Amino acid sequence: MEFVGDEDRFAALEAGVAAATGIERVAPGLAVADAVDPERVRGLAYTRRALDLLGRTDADPRSARAVVEAASIGREGTVAVRARALRDSPAVSTSEVERECGSALVVRGFDVDLDDPDHTLRVLFADDTCLVGWVVAESVRDFSARRPTDRPFFQPGSMAPMDARAYANLAGAGPGTRLVDPMCGTGGVLIEAGLVGSDVVGNDAQAKMVRGARENLAHYLDGAGSPAAPATLGPSPGGFDVIRGDATALALRDDAADGVVFDAPYGRQSKIARHSLDDLVGDALAEAARVAPRGVLVADRSWRDAAVDAGWRVTDSFRRRVHRSLVRHVHVLDRA
């Protein structure tokens, strides 16, 4: 598995929840897994590709070629070889790697087609490790088509779609699931959860946000004029609803959802005037534990103690820098 960005633990957890089992990180930007669901890989945010691994070797062109020469191929048709050195890997000539591995494949009867090959062989270098494998799945990198400023309804402070997708995946988004966002704002997390197949329910205290989130969800999940092409992710987009209400008293029955994900207020006055920020987030966490067994809380500070007090077990946590003045604290939660 070839990760995006430089937070491998975060990428591995997202992939492990949504698309793979038995993930082991082996080098910066690289991991191996026992099994991968190619269709689910298409909806990952922080995994770029999944490969059918031919072999792992030292980080030099001749060792990579030796893997290709010794491997059991089991494929026919045209091929292309793409080599890449990840992050701060030692200098390696990717063009030499592509020539060496390509010539080894030609010797074994393949024709090279760099424009539209039947199969693509990736040769990936990180530190002193080289992984060689056939591409079996790639994530759909269309996040720029859903920039917050390009949505029908926009408000400052909206989360980037790539991060919203990752948090939705961590909360268990996918076909046959229901995801709830009790502080949905403009609906960014719900859009991304819907595009990977979840039915989604949004809640917000402000009528303006409820109307705007409905407009955004209709645009992307109903497909009316949508540039997002949700069908490219495999499943049909999920259904959606947005209601106006208090995040501490949701109009949902117990265990109404498979997952809850929300972005807590960032040190600003809550729009629900009778709540202090501490009470709002603490009570919202307790309410989230009532409606779903899994959750993700994103905030500008740690709410670990409040989550535990509300009936959650914090299984993972991350500090993710957005810009100089904002670090997001991500809490991955299971009901205790």
Results as ranks from 00 to 15, higher is better:
L277P: 10
L190A: 02
N203M: 08
H275G: 02
L277M: 09
D263E: 15
A207D: 11
D254H: 13
R211G: 03
R244A: 08
L217V: 07
R274V: 10
V260N: 02
L252Q: 12
L233Q: 04
R211N: 04
A256Y: 15
T248N: 06
P227F: 13
L221M: 08
A231F: 10
A193M: 11
T248F: 05
K271D: 04
S226W: 11
L233D: 05
F262E: 10
G188I: 15
Y266W: 09
V201C: 05
E215R: 14
P235Y: 02
D255S: 07
L277A: 13
D254T: 14
I272C: 10
E215H: 08
V200E: 01
V261N: 01
V189I: 15
L195G: 09
I272E: 12
V260M: 03
A205G: 09
Y220A: 01
Q206C: 00
I272G: 08
G225I: 08
P227Q: 12
F262K: 15
V189R: 08
A228R: 06
K208H: 01
Q269D: 03
R214Q: 13
G194S: 00
Y220E: 11
L250Y: 09
P235M: 01
A247H: 03
A218R: 07
S276I: 00
P230Q: 02
A257G: 04
G225Y: 04
R244M: 08
D199Y: 13
Q269T: 07
A264R: 13
V189K: 06
A193Y: 09
V210A: 04
A256N: 11
S226P: 08
A193S: 14
M209E: 03
S226Q: 07
A256Q: 12
G267A: 08
V200L: 04
N203S: 10
P230N: 01
A256S: 15
N203R: 05
A251R: 10
V261G: 01
L190N: 01
D246H: 12
T232P: 01
P237N: 00
S226Y: 12
E192G: 08
A251Q: 09
R253Y: 06
L195H: 11
P237A: 02
N203T: 13
R253E: 12
A273V: 13
P265M: 05
K208E: 05
G197P: 04
R214F: 03
M209W: 04
F262D: 13
G238K: 05
H219G: 05
D222P: 09
G197R: 06
A193D: 12
G202M: 08
Y266L: 07
R253K: 10
A257H: 00
T232W: 10
T232Q: 14
I243F: 04
V189Y: 05
S236A: 14
V189L: 15
H275S: 03
A249R: 14
S236H: 09
E215Y: 04
A207E: 14
N216Q: 14
T248R: 12
V196I: 13
A257P: 04
L195T: 14
A218L: 00
Y220R: 04
Q206F: 01
G259A: 06
D263N: 15
Y266S: 06
A213L: 10
V200D: 01
E215C: 07
A213G: 11
G202T: 07
L195C: 12
V261T: 07
K271I: 02
A193W: 11
D255T: 01
F240V: 05
G234N: 05
G259Q: 02
L217N: 10
G188A: 15
K208N: 02
G238D: 01
V189N: 09
A247G: 10
L277T: 13
V260D: 02
